[in-house]
Structures are given as C-alpha cells and as structure tokens.
C-alpha cells in the first residue's frame, strides 16, 4: 500500500493506493499546514481503506506544508504531484490548472504526462484561493456557497484591483454603494479567472486543459475560466485530492524502483 499526503495552506488531503494503483482510501480535512489536519486526513484515509500504518510501503508528502511534515518517506512539490495525478486520471491532459490557497499554477505536460514547463502567480495572492476566501468573508458566505451565490448574478461587476488587500476595500465600497452580493461573487470569480488566464497565456494552454484543486469545485470559477481562456476545461473527479493521488503514485513508483 502507498500513501500520498497533500498539505495545503487551508486543507489537508490523504490518499492510499494499492500496487494496482486502485484508490483504497481518501480523505479531505479543511485545515491545512501547521494544524492537526494532516494527521486527521491520514487517519481517515486509513479507516476508509481498512488498513493500518504498517501496511504502507512508502509515503510521499506534497503541498505547502510538505517541508514541516516529517512522517513521510519523501517530499515532492505540488507541481509535480498535480501533474502526475491529473495525467493519471485524464491521460489526454496537456495542461493542468491548479488554484491552491497560496499559489495558482498552470502546468504544461508532455505526451507522457511529465511536467514540461510551469508558471506560478506573482508573490501576491491575486488569483488564488486566498482571494476567494477573502471575498467570501466580505460577502458573508461560506467559500463553498460562493459559486451558487454567483449563479444568481444579474449584472457584470468588475473587480479591477489585482491585489487582495485593495480588492477587499474595492468590494466593500461597491457593496456600500448598492452592488448586489451575487454580482460581486461573480465579479470575484471573474477576477480570479483573469489572473489565471493571464498566467496561462505565458506558456499557452494546450488541450486537454484539466483543472485540479479544491477551487475546481467552484463552478463559477470554472465557467469564468472557460470564458476568459476560450478553452474547454475538464474538471477532474475529486479535484481536491489530485495532488495526494499524484503523491501516492510517486510513492508507488519510488517503492517499485527500490525493490
């Protein structure tokens, strides 16, 4: 059995696979690096797989919190893991878009599903999950409900500031001058989509374009991204655990090479 752990800035994910690369257990916990989240996710994955820790031959940790997690055998970046996980799930994938809590990335894959090139956001949080969190907080809704809120948008609102801090005050002033929450939610999605589309233009978005990461569950962002990029975007099943799947696949591969 092989374990992949993905410790993000706002959530922890764990996946257990067997030698046939079948997923036996998976778990997502909504607390990330520096908390009990990773332990809880790993524990839940074990319970789902119905196995204990000794059965794990090899484990790989990835994500923002990978450096400080010392219980795995190896650590690999989320860039490499998301690429691997996405290519495994959708072999025709040539581009992976992953919007994480701190980082947004666009990864180009070669025909074997290996990382060919990648780009990430500038240092600030524009175009990342953090931006959406801030927007959800201002709109007084949960991050999960942001998408359904935006479905009822009636008018286009543009959030022009790329900086999260400034966007926050911009949105507050729009709300105070009577803008509808639904429209603002849609504007937030559009703002993220624009930044990520810009990122993608730097290396080009070759089809098939696959989206991974928790933000992929937000239909509003995906729709806005499709509109901004003019490309069809496939959301992989269980997008939030793709990094952990990639990590588990690397665990399997490393162990096979070792034996």
């Amino acid at each position: 059995m092989f374990l992949g752990i993905d410790i993000g800035s706002s959530s922890s994910k764990a996946v257990i696979i067997n030698a046939q690369l079948k997923i036996l257990g998976k778990a997502v916990f909504n607390t990330g690096a520096g908390t009990q989240g990773p332990e809880k996710a790993v524990g839940a994955a074990f319970r789902e797989a119905g196995i204990s820790g000794e059965k794990i031959k090899f484990s790989v940790v990835t994500g923002y919190g990978r450096m400080t997690y010392d219980k795995a055998d190896k650590q690999i970046t989320e860039i490499t893991c998301h690429a691997r996980g996405a290519a495994h799930m959708i072999p025709s994938a040539r581009t992976v878009i992953d919007i994480g809590g701190q980082d947004a990335k666009v990864i180009r894959l070669d025909k074997d599903g290996k990382v060919e090139n990648f780009v990430m956001n500038e240092k600030c949080a524009a175009g990342t999950g953090r931006f959406l969190e801030v927007m959800a907080r201002i709109l007084d809704c949960s991050i999960g409900n942001l998408s359904s809120l935006s479905e009822n948008a009636s008018e286009e609102i543009i959030i022009s500031n790329t900086c999260t801090v400034f966007a926050e005050s911009e949105v507050i002033s729009q709300l105070s001058s009577g803008a509808k929450r639904e429209n603002v939610a849609q504007g937030a999605h559009k703002a993220v989509a624009k930044r990520v589309a810009g990122l993608g233009s730097r290396i080009g978005l070759a089809p098939d374009v696959v989206m991974t990461g928790g933000v992929a569950l937000n239909k509003g962002v995906v729709a806005a991204l499709e509109k901004e990029t003019g490309q069809k975007i496939t959301v992989v099943e269980n997008p939030q655990i793709i990094g952990a799947i990639g990590a588990a696949l690397y665990a399997w591969e490393t162990a096979s090479k070792l034996s």
Partner: peptide, 11 residues
Amino acid sequence: DIKLADKYLQS
C-alpha cells in the same frame, strides 16, 4: 481590460 498583455508584462 488586461488579459493578453499578461503574457509579456508583470502586474
């Protein structure tokens, strides 16, 4: 609106 220029220029 800026979209294409991001290919060449930082924010």
